[in-house]
């Protein structure tokens, strides 16, 4: 069970970690605690599986990658194999089975058009894949994964 302090910690670390030599000391001050106490709680919460990742997040377009969202319609009996085949591409970062006619949705980051097309041709040819939509982004308005705990 999360304490009020745990929730404060989890909300705070979803903000930008300061780019200063002692970033956790800065966060600890905001939370009216010590750097040591904060780090101790963070390690415990991390150990308990609350953190998916604590790291840097980059703007893929600025690094020269193109992102797209792909919707697949897959025959139900072929879905697990298709999902595992899609997972094997390193540029696939999110892959979710969803309710609806298009039942497998994944994001793909590719360094160029030719690579994207080649990967999508391979995926379209997987057993059980009945339809594929390549839903390329025209404009990104928001990417900010933050879960506010109350």
């Amino acid at each position: 069970m999360l304490t009020e302090f745990d929730k404060e910690v989890l909300n705070a670390i979803q903000e930008d970690l300061p780019l200063t030599p002692r970033p956790f000391a800065v966060l600890a001050e905001r939370l009216h605690t010590s750097e040591e106490t904060l780090l101790e709680r963070l390690r415990a919460l991390s150990g308990a599986g609350y953190l998916r990742r604590f790291g840097a997040f980059f703007q893929s377009e600025a690094l020269g990658y193109q992102g797209t969202l792909i919707a697949l319609k897959v025959a139900p009996e072929s879905l697990p194999d298709a999902a595992r085949a899609v997972n094997r591409y390193p540029g696939v970062t999110h892959n979710y089975e969803r309710t609806g006619r298009y039942n497998l949705w994944f994001t793909l980051q590719a360094p160029d058009d030719a690579t994207r097309r080649k990967i999508l041709d391979e995926i379209a040819a997987l057993p059980g894949v009945e339809a594929l939509m390549d839903l390329r982004a025209r404009k990104k308005y928001k990417v900010r994964v933050r879960f506010h705990l109350r």
């Binding site: 989890l10 979803q14 930008d16 604590f54 997040f57 879960f147």
Partner: peptide, 13 residues
Amino acid sequence: RGCLRRIGAVLQH
């Protein structure tokens, strides 16, 4: 330069 969005955590939602 807009290459780094942020450093921080993402929760296991």
